[in-house]
């Protein structure tokens, strides 16, 4: 109820300011509360990361940041909503990596190319995990088993383009004959629960989501999909078994805050400063450690380079796995 009253107030305030909005000067920015749109629903990783950083951003900007979840269509709905708003810096998009694949999956013409990255907040590292009674101790065992029993091993997944799907595409590209049966669930939470219940045999999941289950011995870790060991995880990095993975890494989901590209430069500068400061705040870093994600805190050119590299790796993996609806070459995505 407070939410609605607040939102009502904000919309009234917005109406009152409308006539002067285009000419509003950057030094007054932000003159009213900001609207944050979260691409994913309540209770998900994007939601948690956003809600952890938002109070710090409010502090840095000296303004309220009103958060709203607009989930649906792997984030297309929320992205389109922010894109349909005025480029005045008052509408912030909080999203995950998915928009960088909208092109190849044919979901939307829009992507983060139409936005400016105020900050990339954090990224997750995938871990290869198996049910606790699986007969494998590491990635080598898994690969040996899968290649000798094609299609018989069940892998938990989250649908085409999801994290397990992409990690599987990497494995399939590096290991000839790596064929498994992918069983898709509604997200990594439900898939991990199915793994714990023994309904699938292995999967790739983000470290933060798998960590506590590994620590309690309810599932076991086979490898970290990284070039180095993850702090707190005994399993070896995948590059020790498959050096070919180096060209894909670091790879994993990432979370960031964006505004429309057409936003006036001085306003972007102000927002960018506040968001980068918030992302580098010790409180947010502490949250990242606890949540099991790697804090990033990069923006602008560095962020764009990171995302473009991410898209090149992922889009071509999807294309090679036959899952891309639109040829990445046609979209001008270079192969790495």
């Amino acid at each position: 109820m407070t939410l609605n009253r607040r939102r009502l107030f904000v919309s009234f305030a917005a109406c009152a300011l409308l006539p002067m909005a285009p000419g509003a000067r950057a030094q007054d920015f932000p003159a009213r509360p900001l609207q944050g749109t979260i691409q994913w629903g309540a209770g998900g990783s994007t939601d948690a990361v956003t809600r952890a950083v938002a109070p710090i951003v409010e502090e840095k900007l000296g303004q309220k940041l009103v958060l709203t979840n607009r989930p649906g269509g792997t984030g297309v709905i929320g992205l389109q909503y922010v894109h349909s708003q005025r480029a005045d810096g008052y509408n912030i998009l909080f999203g995950a990596e998915n928009p960088m694949l909208y092109g190849v999956l044919g979901l939307s013409e829009l992507s983060y190319d139409d936005f400016y990255p105020l900050v990339l907040l954090a990224r997750g590292t995938p871990v290869l995990v198996a049910r606790k009674d699986a007969p494998w101790a590491d990635a080598k065992d898994l690969i040996a088993h899968v290649t000798s029993h094609p299609d018989s091993v069940k892998m938990g997944a989250t649908g085409v383009g999801g994290l397990p799907f992409v990690v599987h595409a990497m494995l399939a590209a590096e290991v000839p004959g790596f064929k498994v049966t992918q069983v898709p669930f509604d997200g990594d939470g439900p898939a991990l629960t199915a793994l714990e219940g023994g309904h699938v045999d292995f999967m790739a999941a983000v470290w933060g989501a798998a960590r506590e289950r590994i620590r309690a011995g309810r599932i076991k870790a086979l490898a970290a999909i990284a070039t180095e060991k993850i702090e707190g995880l005994d399993a070896a990095p995948i590059t020790e078994t498959l050096p070919g993975f180096t060209k894909y890494l670091p790879w994993g989901p990432f979370f960031g805050a964006f505004v429309k590209k057409e936003t006036p430069q001085p306003i972007i500068a102000k927002l960018e400063k506040a968001f980068v400061e918030a992302a580098n705040d010790p409180r947010f870093k502490e949250f990242c450690a606890n949540f099991g994600v790697v804090p990033m805190g990069i923006s602008g050119k560095a962020a764009i380079d990171f995302m473009n590299r991410w898209r090149s790796v992922t889009a071509w993996l999807l294309a090679d796995a036959g899952a891309a609806k639109v040829d990445p070459a046609k979209l001008g995505i270079p192969r790495i």
């Binding site: 998900g44 948690a48 309690a216």
Partner: peptide
């Protein structure tokens, strides 16, 4: 359910580690 999923996120933000060892 969905509400307990949000409460789990809240626990993370408050520095706890929801999981089998909670």
């Amino acid at each position: 359910d969905a509400v307990t999923a949000v409460i789990i996120a809240a626990l993370f933000i408050h520095g706890l580690r929801p999981g089998p060892n909670l």
